[in-house]
Amino acid sequence: MTFARLAGPTKAAAVTLTVDGQRIAARDGDTVAAALLAAGRQAIRRSAVTGEPRAPYCQMGVCFECLVEIDGVADRQACLVPVRNGMVVATQQGEG
């Protein structure tokens, strides 16, 4: 599943973040989780026991399926954190 942006006009400023070493374009007002989806990322972590791929499920802070490392801090809920220019995000594909 990939996500597309609506074509309508927006005054939201462009924001750039780095995800796993790659630069991705986002918009002011995006959460990190939404920005990842909009950039074509889906399975952003692996489950703790069997290591199966997981993706954000609830987008409102309850499921914890969106945990990523943001600016060096691990296990942040990407759906609760707004993007900022220059933010460095690393997905946690290795551990739970």
């Binding site: 599943m1 996500f3 597309a4 942006r5 609506l6 918009r27 889906q42 409102m60 759906c79």
Partner: peptide, 21 residues
């Protein structure tokens, strides 16, 4: 991956104006 709640889709629509292709 690919399975979410309905609310999650509505959330990202409001938050970022994005929708699944």
């Amino acid at each position: 991956p690919g399975v979410t709640t309905v609310g999650a889709l509505q959330t990202v629509l409001k938050q970022s104006g994005i929708f699944p292709r």
